[in-house]
Nucleic acid binder design. Structure first.
Lengths: 233, 233
DNA sequence: CATTATTAATATGTACTACATAATAACTTT
DNA sequence: AAAGTTATTATGTAGTACATATTAATAATG
C-alpha cells in the first residue's frame, strides 16, 4: 500500500486534551454571545454542568484565558470578560534569553522598519512642547559619558519619538522591544558603537524646520550603521 | 489620619494565587537553570514535592506556560522547554471583536507605520523573481470585480510586500494584523473605497526602476486616504 | 542469540471529593 | 431603620483515584 498517502486516508487522531477543547468552546461561547468587557460570566460549576467535564478541566481552560487577559476573576465574586491586553501577552514571552536568534534578528529589523515609518505620524502630531522635550533629551547626551549612559540616552530619545506619535500601543511596543534591541546591540558591539552621520540633535532640527522627506532621509542616515550590519539573507 | 497616603504605609495585601506564584517560580527556574529549547523538564510530581503545593496548582501554572508556547508536553512522556512562539501568543488575543477601539485604531496606525518603513528592507532584498510575482498580483486586480475581491487582492499585494522583506516575523505580523485592518477599513467604508493616486502597479514600477525615496513617496501617496482619515487626536 | 510478545513502570490527563476563604445576601436584633 | 450576625455562594487549594499512552524491562520463541 502507498504509505505516502496514508495520512490522507487515515484521519489524524486528535491529540487535543479536554482542556484544549474547553478553551476553544469558551472562546466561541464568548464570541457567540457577544459578551462585552465587564460582563459577568457563568460560574465554574455551571460551565462544568454545561460542558460535561470535570471542574479541573474547566479551571485549567479558564486559567489560560485569564493568562491571556481575556477574563478576570475577582476572587469569590465571579468572572468577568476583560479587555484583553494585546501587548501584555506578547510581553510575557518576549525574553531575549529564550527567543530564537532568527526571530531576534527579525524583531530588530522590525524596529528599524518601525522607526523609518514613524515620520508621517510624527509630523502629523508634533507640537512645540514635544519637540522641546525631545531636544532636551538630545542635548543631555553631549555629556558623552560612559557607554551605559549613552545607551540609556539612546533609548530615551527614540522612546520619546514613539511617544510623540501619540500612539500608546506603539509606545508600549517600543518599551517591550527595548530589551531585544539592547540584546542585539550587544551582539554587534565588536564594531565600535557609532550613531551614523546624523545624530539626535540633527533629527530634532529636522523635525523643527525640515520636511517629512528630510526626516526620513535623516533617520535612515542615523540608523545606517544598523542597516549595514544586516545581511542580505 | 491622612487617607491619601494610607496606601503608602499599608502594604497591599497580595492577591496572587498559588498558581500565579508557581508560574513565576517556574519562569525563574527555567531561566536560572538556563534550560535550552528541547531540554527535558522535571516531572509534575517532582515540582509538587519541590514547591510544596498541590498538583492542581502546578498543573494550572504549567498549563498557562504551555499556552504561551514556553513548554510542550508530549503526552505521557514528559515536558520539554519549547521555543516560544512570540507572535503566536499575540495572535490568540487579537480578535477585532473584542479589542478596544482605541487599540484597534493604534494597530491600524501601526500598520501604516510599518508599510511606510518597509522601503529600506524592500530595496535591500528585492529580486527580479519577487518583483515579477508582485507584478502578477498587481495585474490581477485590473478585473476590478466585486468589492470583496478587491479587498482580497489588496491584502495579497501588501502581503507580498512583507514577504519580499524576507523577514518571516514581519510577514506573520502582517497576517495577524490583517483582520484588524479589514475591520478598520469596514469602519471607514462610508467614504468610497479609494486607493490614492498611486496604485499597486505604480508601486511595482517604482520598485523596478525607482529609488527608495521614490518608493516611500509612492507608498505615502498610496496610503494617503488612510492617513487623511486619521485624526490629530 | 536475536527478535518478538508480554508485562511492568512511568507520567500525564481526567474525575471526584472535601474544605478554606472572601464576598455577598439574607436575616435578626435593638 | 441601622447595625450586627448568619447563611449562601463561588473561587482557591489539597488530595485521592484511575485511565491511558509511552517507554523500559522482562519473558518467550524460533
Amino acid at each position: 500500500m502507498d504509505v505516502e498517502n496514508l495520512s490522507k486516508d487515515l484521519e489524524r487522531v486528535s491529540t487535543e486534551t479536554m482542556a484544549d477543547i474547553v478553551e476553544l468552546r469558551l472562546r466561541e461561547f464568548f464570541k457567540k454571545k457577544s459578551f462585552k468587557p465587564g460582563d459577568a460570566l457563568p460560574k465554574e460549576m455551571e460551565l462544568v454542568a454545561a460542558l460535561g467535564v470535570s471542574r479541573n478541566v474547566v479551571r485549567e481552560a479558564l486559567s489560560r484565558l485569564r493568562m491571556l487577559g481575556m477574563i478576570e476573576t475577582r476572587k469569590k465574586r465571579g468572572m468577568i470578560l476583560a479587555r484583553p491586553d494585546v501587548l501584555g501577552t506578547f510581553e510575557r514571552v518576549l525574553d531575549p534569553l529564550i527567543i530564537d536568534d532568527h526571530i531576534l534578528q527579525d524583531l530588530f529589523e522590525l524596529r528599524l522598519v518601525l522607526e523609518m515609518g514613524l515620520a508621517d505620524l510624527l509630523f502629523l502630531r508634533k507640537t512645540d512642547k514635544n519637540i522641546a522635550e525631545l531636544e532636551k533629551i538630545a542635548l543631555d547626551e553631549t555629556h558623552d559619558g560612559e557607554k551605559r549612559f549613552r545607551v540609556k540616552n539612546e533609548i530615551a530619545f527614540h522612546g520619546k519619538l514613539y511617544e510623540i506619535t501619540g500612539n500608546n500601543t506603539l509606545k508600549r511596543f517600543q518599551v517591550m522591544l527595548m530589551p531585544v534591541f539592547g540584546y542585539v546591540t550587544t551582539l554587534e558591539k565588536d564594531k565600535e558603537y557609532q550613531t551614523g552621520k546624523v545624530n539626535h540633535l540633527d533629527l530634532v532640527n529636522i523635525l523643527k524646520n525640515g520636511t517629512k522627506e528630510d526626516f526620513k532621509a535623516g533617520m535612515y542616515a542615523h540608523l545606517k550603521p544598523h542597516f549595514d550590519s544586516l545581511t542580505k539573507k
